[in-house]
Design a protein around this nucleic acid. Structure first.
Length: 257
DNA sequence: GTCTTTGTTGGCAC
DNA sequence: AGTGCCAACAAAGA
């Protein structure tokens, strides 16, 4: 689930629910997902409040009153819940507020991570996070795509180049662009760089507008039809599955050349 | 039981 | 150095 649009929805949720409340304590139920351990998280967060919820690629950044950052990454599956009372069984960590509510980090497969950072730039460098896919400008995008090699799909999914696009949304962007994910980026002309740039923005914005809910995407999207034998929303042909850089992808052989 | 899965990292080959 | 491929991590569903 958690690619850029999903994390953006989580960001909005955290912003709406969890800011400006005193943090009473932090609990970690699964130490594996905490790169900063429970006692240190408490040291940094106890008695403070969250004042901003931001996002960088697939990372959610919760800034504290001391201008430090609680960083969350959801891995392959995960979400947030702000609630009182019983926790979801896959809750791996919680921020407990003085009003009795908790912001729960739910992460069934334990591939997500939370950590604490005092410096966003240092964090971004250390984790090799590139430009956020919604923040990047056309000129920056063109510089990057001109000097990189490899397939379109691996380019879009490489977080150190552009941050936020994963397997699902790279499929969607390339479907909308009418480009085969296996194509080499070196084959593209400048006008195609621009088209791709526009479609990255458009697909991600539309997904966010639709709450990043795969069951609620525009009819023109291939996302709801990521299954072999489904029909292409553009031409009615059959959706096919293939593999590149170790990841399965779905596409329409007729529409994507 | 087997295979696949929305992510990331590290190892190996070229 | 850059790129591709694979395994590992973990758990759930088909």
């Amino acid at each position: 689930m958690p690619e850029l649009p999903d994390v953006e929805i989580f960001r909005q949720y955290a912003e709406k629910n969890a800011l400006n409340q005193e943090i009473e304590k932090v609990t970690v139920d699964e130490p594996k997902i905490a790169e900063t351990d429970e006692s240190q998280l408490n040291e940094e967060l106890k008695g403070r409040e969250l004042i901003r919820a931001e996002r960088l690629g697939k990372y959610l950044l919760l800034t504290t009153t001391k201008e430090n950052i609680l960083v969350m990454h959801f891995g392959m599956t995960g979400w947030l819940e702000y609630k009182q009372g019983e926790k979801h069984r896959h809750t791996r960590a919680s921020l407990i507020f003085s009003n009795g509510y908790a912001l729960n980090f739910i992460n069934p497969r334990k591939l997500g991570r939370i950590s604490f950072s005092s410096n966003l730039d240092a964090f971004q460098k250390e984790k090799k996070v590139g430009k956020d896919a919604l923040a990047i400008k056309l000129e920056e995008f063109q510089d990057l795509i001109r000097k990189k090699k490899g397939t379109l799909k691996s380019f879009l999914m490489n977080q150190s180049i552009i941050a936020g696009i994963g397997n699902i949304y790279s499929d969607e962007i390339l479907f909308q662009a009418g480009m085969n994910p296996k194509r080499q980026i070196s084959e593209l002309e400048d006008y195609q760089h621009m088209a791709l740039f526009q479609l990255i923005k458009e697909v991600l914005h539309k997904a966010i507008e639709h709450n990043a809910d795969p069951g609620n995407m525009p009819l023109s999207f291939i996302i709801p039809r990521r299954k072999e034998g489904e029909k292409c929303p553009a031409c009615g042909g059959e959706v096919k599955k293939d593999k590149v850089s170790g990841r399965g992808f779905y596409y329409c052989p007729t529409c994507q050349k």
